[in-house]
Design a protein around this nucleic acid. Sequence first.
DNA 1: TAGGCTTGCCTAGAGGTCCTAGGCAAATAA
DNA 2: TTATTTGCCTAGGACCTCTAGGCAAGCCTA
Lengths: 189, 189
Amino acid sequence: MARAGLTAERLTQAAAELADEVGFENVTVSALARHFGVKDASLYSHIRNAHDLRVRLAVLALAELAERVAAAIAGRSGKDALVAFAQAYRTYAHEHPGRYTATQMALDPDTAATSAAAKHAEMTRAILRGYDLWEPDQTDAVRLLHSTFHGYVSLERAGAFHSHPRGVEASWLRSLDALDSLLRSWPTD
Amino acid sequence: MARAGLTAERLTQAAAELADEVGFENVTVSALARHFGVKDASLYSHIRNAHDLRVRLAVLALAELAERVAAAIAGRSGKDALVAFAQAYRTYAHEHPGRYTATQMALDPDTAATSAAAKHAEMTRAILRGYDLWEPDQTDAVRLLHSTFHGYVSLERAGAFHSHPRGVEASWLRSLDALDSLLRSWPTD
DNA sequence: TAGGCTTGCCTAGAGGTCCTAGGCAAATAA
DNA sequence: TTATTTGCCTAGGACCTCTAGGCAAGCCTA
């Protein structure tokens, strides 16, 4: 009997593809086992449980997203960097809906620190170098940007913007203009 | 044998309470049946299936949230209205985490139109009356505000802001200042 | 108040997911 | 080659979803 050659990495990778196909919430141990032509129980020597699998998937997705964003903002600054960041973020979410959903998992503090989650804040902060913002305004702005990007993508995918004919793409670009303008004249109390 | 007196409404209400206690994803038909001291199968004469139950819960939560927000902005305008809206929105999400998660369910177009989801956009639009914004900027601003509020609450609950010592509350209030400032000087191309 | 009707909740049971315990055999090390 | 590790297996329990069909509580009407 030939072995399937499973590893935690291969499982995580396959889970990521599965997530994009059928949605993050449908990434089950059973489905993954089926995909490899193997019994459910066989996976438990590689992953601790279903939650562990999803955490690994989240960490993978966070790393991919961080990499994309880093590549996008490299060599840019100011509004260029802001737009590049936002486009990379949103594009990743659209191309990899399941993986993107995974990035929103609540990770325990240890995992979050080890993962690329911290890199996000750092990169968002890098964008702000092109603007005249210092602590604590910088942190407030980072949080606002992150929230807006995530909120936009999240609501868009939930269909919240379908009720109005105005194109989502156009609104998105205008919102980036608005955020740029806001960062350039951040209210100082 | 006395009857439990179940109705779709009572089930939905109980599901809402359950969601806030154990999380939206743990709202199961079984758990609900246990709560009423009844067998799982008994619920299927009142609700079609588990998905139907969750949709009803989402519709309930959307209505509650809309009501809170409407009460908050009544009689206010401009920045007052903006802040009241935002606070009501975030407070609801904090007090009713399970219900709030439910509001993010992807509803089919019919249900969404019938539900209070449409009311949200309408109310956000009402806020903008205090600012000098007209179509299509108004729609863009509505989407930006909605995204930011949802994104903030969502990231906050996922623990995304814990990595930095700056208080989330302080950041949130500053972000509202920033949004107010942005709406007052919305960039016109 | 006795009959009949509706309907609320039941039992039984099939199928799916998660996970543990323990076993055999393939791959690797001694 | 033998010993050890490791990968995948079978078996089985617990929980969740949902369907089909049954009995009786509570309502009507006479």
